[in-house]
Amino acid sequence: MEPMGKVLMINYEKCTGCRLCELVCSVMHEGVSNPSRSRIKVVKWESEGLYVPISCQQCQDAPCVNVCPVKALSRDETLDFVEVDYDVCIGCRACVSACPFGAMSFDVIAKKVIKCDLCDGDPQCVRFCEIEAVEYVDADRVSVFKKRDAAQRLSAAQKEAAALQAQL
């Protein structure tokens, strides 16, 4: 049984901006090492040292699915992601304009739209990201991780406050 409803969880605080994910993504899908043809993109603020990897959000009510004039985009039931059927796709790029996140892009070399397809359940960006800034987890686990994070921050702040109080 394939994993159900797993998503790419991006932890931008961990990302170092090495852009290895972009490289492996383009190698996996296009066979060439070309970041401009990658499905995942890292947005950088170099001076702040902040790097945000952005990829398809696999929206439930996806704008790209709604605007597609030939219904080439659909939700894959097994892996639960938005899938492009390239036999149906005519390349009108309506989805590129419709995506609120800019995650759908047009590959001018292969002349087709590209979006994250989760590598058939084995995302290569996750496999190669050593610092685990991109993780492939069950959708319901994402909130658990966030709760744990928040709880950790809370307890750290409390400890800090207690230490400050002890000083006084």
Partner: peptide, 30 residues
């Protein structure tokens, strides 16, 4: 084409290019 998309979708993001939309989204994390 954007006018046609505007019939199905409404949103300010339709006025921005994909690159700026990406930046916008990353900005929320920023």
């Amino acid at each position: 084409q954007l006018d046609k998309i505007g019939q199905t979708l409404t949103g300010d993001y339709l006025r921005f290019c994909p690159r700026c939309k990406k930046l916008d989204f990353a900005q929320t994390f920023y």
